[in-house]
Design a binder for these strands. Sequence first.
DNA 1: CGCAAAAAACATGCATGCACTTTCTCGGCC
DNA 2: GGCCGAGAAAGTGCATGCATGTTTTTTGCG
Lengths: 258, 258
Amino acid sequence: MAREDDESRKSADKVGTICRALRRAILEQALEPGAKLPEDALGERFGVSRTIARHALGQLAAEGLVELRRNRIAVVATPSWRDARDAFDVRIELERLVMRQLAGRLGKAQIAALTAHVDAEEAAAAGPDAVSIRLATEFHILLATMTESPILIRYVSEIAYRCCLTLSLFSRPHSSECGVSEHRGVIAALASGDAEVAIGLMHEHLESVASRALVAPGKPRGRDIMDILAPYASPDAAAARRDSAGDRSAGRASVDAE
Amino acid sequence: MAREDDESRKSADKVGTICRALRRAILEQALEPGAKLPEDALGERFGVSRTIARHALGQLAAEGLVELRRNRIAVVATPSWRDARDAFDVRIELERLVMRQLAGRLGKAQIAALTAHVDAEEAAAAGPDAVSIRLATEFHILLATMTESPILIRYVSEIAYRCCLTLSLFSRPHSSECGVSEHRGVIAALASGDAEVAIGLMHEHLESVASRALVAPGKPRGRDIMDILAPYASPDAAAARRDSAGDRSAGRASVDAE
DNA sequence: CGCAAAAAACATGCATGCACTTTCTCGGCC
DNA sequence: GGCCGAGAAAGTGCATGCATGTTTTTTGCG
């Protein structure tokens, strides 16, 4: 009944399709952190059974994008501030490796592809934040792809997704101006072949993104009343603050629209 | 990704149990790279249905320990030499971060735990290689655990498992002597609080493990008989092939862990 | 009117059944 | 004798059913 639309192409891989769709939805904040993801709703939406939806959720949980609680509805992950900081720390190390592997080894076509991507970012800067954030994230993934190291690609993608999710939680209205110019700087450094400069630029870039986003530990911009009030409700606010990932989401299930 | 959710200690978690058992079996080379993992056999061995076994395999596949081919029996992953080198590169970066986070921040109890683990390694050096290799790997995971950064823990664990799998493929009989002393050196540096020294020692350690293992690109030791015997192309090849491959597929696929 | 306990609705955990694909095997043919 | 193809066997892909646990609604009571 639903969509066997892409049956003609490579879409024999159903769980992969669902994973990609959900990932993208999460990245663009169509599904906010804490949003419920019931298996049967997903299954109905994508025209598959719960079995497949379940498998896809497991996959996404492995990537850290959704949180799987036993006997409970899966929800989009809500990383704590501490998680976010850790994620950026790891990301910086991984992307340092990307820089080292790529510096001076890029062909003309690759440079062109990178430049084109940044152009697209610039073009999208006027549009909605969601697209702009996604494109910025995908720039880093594009870089990682060029290392042709499957492991590195997977890890950078994963961590970049998580960071992106985090940004959507903590960051105020995205200002991508600086992001674009910093990306251009990285491309230039890579093209010139100076690994140290490229590493330095990327480090600076990521650090600035992180600090722009992670200025203060708290302040999830309000979705769930219980979350927001948690620190105030209890006498010892310190304990509540520490466990800021506590999730009592009573939000609507974003998937069963219409 | 070891744990998508931390049900790891509850015995109600069946897929986690199977994952852990299989991981361990793979680590200790009870299951060699290329070994078949039919869902039926797994399910029967662990007393669950194919559904669960399948889920566990998916999990392990996400970790890169098993290879999942559509409509085909899953097999223990057989990383290429290139994969192995990439894995070590990533691992070095990640463990550098571990060192930086841990240097000078370890309590007495933690130092003691680390020392005790290395003592166990030393004691196991006389025993079978499999145990010794596993313990050496777990030392690094123990270190990562002490960072208390879930992301870092997960990534280091995963990459360490993969490297361990690789070692079992390419390395010659394990010589853990040096490993133990290097581990002790790292502990000392961490305790003294000198981050740079710790980073340097760990880097050296990993590099030496990698180079011990990855001397030459070739020689997949005994996985696919066809590959190995290809150069020889003798008439007896058929017999040898039956002997090894057939045997493994049927009965030995399952694990008697612990 | 508020609150708590019971029950209905809802969702997941897991096993099993059926269809389809790959692999193995055996008998016919060159 | 060796190669090849049809059928059988084995295995995966996926949906569905039932049991169990969770959330919400309803109902009874102070």
